[in-house]
Amino acid sequence: MRVLLVDDEADLASALAERLDMRGIAAEWVTDGMEALQRAASNDFDVAVLDLKMPRIGGLELKARLQSLHPDMKFIFLTGYGSETDFKEVACHEGEACYLVKPVDIQILIDLIRRVTHSGGEA
């Protein structure tokens, strides 16, 4: 399984990627939506874990653009919003039900990654 992590906080993305790697999930990380699109253009990823609020391209727009490159790719959003309720509102607005509020629990993230890849749809 290959995961693409996109978060403008490099120290978060790199640590998460390393921890996923240690648990048998191959993860690559980038800090910018444009970089993510370039990486995805030449690589196949099963799941993209996207920060919702990023400069240039936000998570929701990035999801749409990645999905046009890889229609089968699954998506999980991360957010630093103040509360889970805030994020549900944003995510549900786009028909998403897949989110995690920072700080995330690594095991919950892994469970969610496994769930979206096995369910055949978004979480």
């Binding site: 906080e9 630093g80 509020v101 920072k102 700080p103 995330v104 690594i106």
Partner: peptide, 18 residues
């Protein structure tokens, strides 16, 4: 500010986990 604090806490938590 609370959004930024969340990010800082997330980085601390993830790196402590690492």
């Amino acid at each position: 500010v609370s959004h930024e604090l969340k990010n800082a806490l997330a980085i601390i938590k993830e790196n402590a986990g690492l």
